[in-house]
Amino acid sequence: MHKVKAKGILSQTNGINIYRGCQHGCIYCDARSDCYQIKHKFEDIEVKENAPELLEKALASKRKLCMVGTGAMSDPYMPLEKELRLTRKCLEIIERHSFGATVHTKSSSVMRDIDILQRINQKSKAVLQMTLTTADEKLCKVIEPNVSTTAKRVHTLKEFHNAKIPTVVWLSPFLPFINDTKENIDALLDYCIKSGVKGIICFGIGVTLRNGDREYFYSQLDRHFPGMKERYIKTYNNAYDVASPNGNPLMQRIANVCGKEGIMFGTDRVFSYLHEYENKYEKQNLQLSLFDYL
C-alpha cells in the first residue's frame, strides 16, 4: 500500500475510485489491463488519502443532487478498508449532503456500512451492487481467491433486502469452459430470487481480455486449469470479447427467469435505474402539500 494526494475524486459521471489496484486477486480482473495505466504493482494499492476532503469540496459545490457511485474500477471494500475506512468517510459525506449512493463490491464487509447506507436510502436512494460468478465455493476460491465466499455475498444481499435497501447483482464474468454452465447460472439465479434482488446486470456469457489482463489470466489458467490456456488460444486467439459457445441459450435463460420473477433486467434499464436520483424528502413534502387541497 502507498498513499498519494489526488487532484480530484469525482468523475464526470459522478463516480469515485478511492483505491487503484486490488487485493482480491480475481484471475479475470479487467482492471489489470494496460489501458488503465496503473504504473505500480497491482497488489501495491494506491490509496487516495485525501479522497474525503476532495469529495466534500466537490459535493458542496455541486448544483444538482445525484447518485454517486463507487467500485467501478477497484473494490471499495478490499481488506485494507477495514483499517483506513475511507469508503465509510465518503459515504458519511454523501449522506450529509443528501446525495444518493451506489456501491459495487464482492465483499460482505459492506455490512459494516449498512447503517450509513440505510440513512442515505431514507433520504434519497442507496443501492448495493454485488458480483456473483459461481455457486461452486471451491471454484470461487480459485478464480476469486481473496473475496468473500458466494454464500457470504448472498447472505449480505439478503440482509440489505431486509433493510429495505435495493440490490443489483452483476452476473459476470462467465469464463468459457469453466463456469459457463446452465447448472451454475440456475443456481445463481435461485440465489438472486431468494435474496429479493431488484435487478440483474449481465453483459453476456463470457469474459473480456486485454493486454495486461490476458497475460495474468493465462498464467492463472496454467496454474489452476492445466491445458485450458491452450484451449483458449486455439478457440479465441487474442480476441478481446471471449464469448461462451453456450452464450445465446444461457442469456435467454436469464432473461426468461427475470421476466417470470419480476427482476429488472437489461443493461440500459438497470443502469438507468442506478443513475436515477430520488429525493424522498421532496416526495414526502409534496404528499403533505397535496393534503392542503383536500
Rank of each mutant, 00 (worst) to 15 (best):
K5P: 06
K5T: 13
K5H: 07
A6I: 03
Q12F: 12
G15P: 02
G21L: 09
H24F: 14
C26E: 07
C26I: 06
C26F: 06
I27N: 08
I27K: 09
R32T: 00
Y36Q: 07
K39H: 13
E43I: 09
V47C: 05
E49A: 10
A51T: 08
P52A: 03
E53K: 15
L54V: 05
E56P: 02
L59V: 05
A60S: 15
R63E: 15
R63D: 14
K64E: 12
V68K: 10
T70I: 11
S74Q: 00
Y77Q: 12
L80P: 11
K82I: 04
T87W: 07
R88T: 11
K89T: 02
C90N: 03
L91N: 02
E92Y: 00
E92K: 13
S98P: 12
S98M: 14
G100N: 08
G100H: 11
S107E: 10
S108D: 04
V110M: 07
M111T: 10
R112N: 13
D113H: 10
L117E: 11
K123E: 04
K123T: 10
K125Y: 07
A126G: 02
M130K: 09
T131F: 06
T133K: 05
T133Y: 09
T134H: 08
A135C: 02
E137H: 08
C140V: 00
A151W: 04
L157Q: 08
K158H: 13
E159C: 13
I165G: 01
P166N: 02
T167H: 00
V168H: 05
L175S: 03
P176G: 07
F177H: 13
D180C: 01
L189H: 04
C192W: 04
K194S: 12
V197M: 03
K198W: 13
F203H: 15
G206A: 07
G206W: 03
G206N: 01
V207Q: 02
L209Y: 04
N211T: 13
G212M: 06
D213G: 12
Y216A: 11
S219G: 00
S219T: 11
R223T: 05
E230D: 15
Y232A: 05
Y232N: 01
I233P: 06
I233S: 01
T235H: 10
A239R: 05
Y240W: 09
N246W: 02
N246I: 07
G247T: 09
L250Y: 03
M251T: 10
V257Q: 00
G259I: 07
K260Y: 03
T267V: 15
T267Y: 11
F271Q: 12
F271Y: 10
Y273T: 10
H275M: 15
H275D: 15
E276P: 06
N279A: 00
N279V: 11
K280A: 09
L286C: 11
L288M: 05
L288F: 10
S289W: 14
F291T: 15
D292A: 15
